[in-house]
Design a protein around this nucleic acid. Sequence first.
DNA 1: GCTCGATCATACTCATGAGTAGATATTCTA
DNA 2: TAGAATATCTACTCATGAGTATGATCGAGC
Lengths: 235, 235
Amino acid sequence: MNSRRASPQPAGKSPAASPSPWRARRRDREVKREAVIRAAAHAFNRKGYHNTSLNDIAAALEVTKPTVYYYVTNKEHLLFQCFLAGIEPIRAAFREVKDLGLPARARLNAVLRHYGEAVASEFGWCMVRAEDQDLSPAMSRHIKALKSEIDQGIRRLIREGVQDGSIEPCDPKMTAFALAGALNWIAHWYRVDQSLTPAEIAAAFVAIFEGGLRPRSAAQVALRAPLKRRVRIAR
Amino acid sequence: MNSRRASPQPAGKSPAASPSPWRARRRDREVKREAVIRAAAHAFNRKGYHNTSLNDIAAALEVTKPTVYYYVTNKEHLLFQCFLAGIEPIRAAFREVKDLGLPARARLNAVLRHYGEAVASEFGWCMVRAEDQDLSPAMSRHIKALKSEIDQGIRRLIREGVQDGSIEPCDPKMTAFALAGALNWIAHWYRVDQSLTPAEIAAAFVAIFEGGLRPRSAAQVALRAPLKRRVRIAR
DNA sequence: GCTCGATCATACTCATGAGTAGATATTCTA
DNA sequence: TAGAATATCTACTCATGAGTATGATCGAGC
């Protein structure tokens, strides 16, 4: 669509040389573009996608609608950008944790903590709530693929955990749904209840997932080798 | 608005006598009204609230828009009716379980099972996704109150469980958020993945909540005695 | 000072969808 | 069978919001 920027080398200049006057301009433009995306995320967060008009977003930035369209191609792309901003930290968490040599449950917990924080972030709503229903088929496929990547990553960690004995045997699919669901839901209530930080919430949730509701007695935990958490009955 | 039904006694007839020919008529009307609500729930389910027009709903019923308006006052009320239909079984579950003399965890599990089934039901989407953002302030308050009632009910069961020793000590608020969130999220994926029945899913989730991810050895499960003081040393 | 491209505003178009006014058809009762 | 409810349709109004055509402005380089 927008092809103005298609040829960044004005032909005839030395290619690799000087970042040239554009660099600054570009950065400037990029900064504004990001401001638009942040403003959109904020508005979507508060009022929902459908109840937010591009006029609203423009007004929040103290510009007019065509200005917004100067930076993004349309509303759907705007949502998509918010989605990407929200999901990227989660993908990063998977990469980060990959080669740490930890047992799978520890890796899973680390990922879930990042996941929870991402959902409670500015872009959490957009990430969690970008629905097929609101999107063109192409965009829907794209988003679904990214979501699925996360889902599969969680399932894989669960499977690995069951194999290395750090996770109680369970159905990886259902368990992944339960974990992700609980965390996703944070986006629905965090807005109104900010008594905890995202990190605290994520940590609390991970603790709940780990232990489960059923009370556990002290003795047994010890006999699982590599674990450090202890429980004691104080009579 | 619609005041045709305002004076059911045509003045001059004996008031308390004969249920009169109206009864049948009324039932008929009620049947159609429910059909409208079901059709709406179905459409909301598939395409979301904002992407469903009343024309769509009318078309699904093979009538026209004004006919739909003959049975419901507006789109928002329609969503509200769907919400009520979805949430009622959950409220019923609380009542049902109340005087059963079970330990709190068993009562909680029963409620959660019903909860999960409700979310996976036809009206699950509407119940879970009826957002303040889409509703008038009055309606929003009403829905929030009903949702809060459920939330408080779950928290109460958790607290009772911690007291009677059937539930591991935990923060009731966070735990309730985690449980409800995981179950609510079913509404997002059940549509596309129907490999399990709602009851099976609910049961699987409850099992996950109970046990947690941390492996537990076989022996210990048996020794859950009535009441003991337990202290957990975390980290 | 002039030109050119980047940026932004004014003032539209156009489609969609909620909700309604005012017929018309149907059915039940007297 | 007249007439009164009841039920449904045709044909609108009206507001909103996405997206655009077009022109003004501003700053950098010559």
